[in-house]
Design a protein around this nucleic acid. Sequence first.
DNA 1: TATAAAATGTTGCAAATGCAACATTACACT
DNA 2: AGTGTAATGTTGCATTTGCAACATTTTATA
Lengths: 210, 210
Amino acid sequence: MRKLFSRISSLEQKKLMKLLETSILYYKKDSTIFSTLQTNMIGIMLEGHAQIIRTDYNGNKTIIEELKEEAVFGSFISGLTSNECDVIAKEDCKILVIDYDRIIEDEKNNHFSYYVQFIKNLLEITTDIIDDKNNRIEILTKKSIRDKLLEYFNIYSRKHGTHIIYLPFSYTDFSYYLAVDRSAMSRELKNLRDEGFIETKGKRITLLYR
Amino acid sequence: MRKLFSRISSLEQKKLMKLLETSILYYKKDSTIFSTLQTNMIGIMLEGHAQIIRTDYNGNKTIIEELKEEAVFGSFISGLTSNECDVIAKEDCKILVIDYDRIIEDEKNNHFSYYVQFIKNLLEITTDIIDDKNNRIEILTKKSIRDKLLEYFNIYSRKHGTHIIYLPFSYTDFSYYLAVDRSAMSRELKNLRDEGFIETKGKRITLLYR
DNA sequence: TATAAAATGTTGCAAATGCAACATTACACT
DNA sequence: AGTGTAATGTTGCATTTGCAACATTTTATA
């Protein structure tokens, strides 16, 4: 994962945070970090662990994203706008908050090299995010559950250069990621097993084709 | 739409293009601009009009994106990686090509204010793109065709602040965007009409609910 | 304006999937 | 270790959707 402060020394980092008038916020376990309202804010998880959670009209909760250390998040990144999403601290968290508009609008900081580096890092992170979103869209546009699974496997396999997949989330969350019914997905995984395309053991899936 | 060269004078723009060693390429109508291979390149359509087109294993072609003047495109933006996508000129085109790696890696240019402005512009464009991708994902994750349509309508309506929708593409392409069968979508639109939720006339859809 | 080509509308049918309900297993917490 | 909770596996059934085939309308092009 790319980092927001790579190629920036800790001294420069301090100057930068002064420049951007960032603030550091602390949250206790189980407290709400962001609600939908705050917009144009970028959060960087310095310490701790949180989850972006959506609650739909039925009250069902789904984990949209896991936020570990170094994770960058915010409304414009995660698509929180107009959705009923909250960011909930699963441990005590220390979060750096930056006003996105300040980054873009201020011109007086342009001559600080570390400031430019910071923006480049942010640009790299956003293009990585686009890449992830493109992958998900590629998967979601497949018509059948089988094709969605296989596309996920292909992308994972290509990215990691391996035929053994370790699911980074539970099967329940996996079905949400693919936007299909969990039990139907389970059925299709069984079909793929029976037909000899894959082997599974827990969250490890081995691709047997090709 | 945001522009890559906003807040940059034409003189600075020239300097910038020298700095980044950009090149301007000309393409005749119906010629192929990008094939899948070229990666890490950003294209800016200066003059003309092109389409990003995917050809699947059946030979079916679908328009992924329309590229009009000022449009920014490239593998990392459009998810062209590993897909059978081509960019085809529909008119004679004049395209500015920039090596993305050069933007990110070079540090010697950091002190040019217009260079920083350029990167900021690029950052803004990428965050806008993320926003679009998030919207599409939001739509694609709906289970039924009806819900996909309604979600599209809602997002459009919110963005444009109107209850009258002018589809920016054909119904055929619309069904591709929603990743559903065209005839099934047509059927569902008819249902929505019959139930009094919408009125349609060509590509104009009027929302009657709420 | 004529004609071909593309887009759109419509329908029957088969197949895939969502849904619900329940059994079984894994996991977390005390 | 024991107990409650969450995750996963399984299956029948109703519904939705994709697919195919064709009619009709619109658009593009000579």
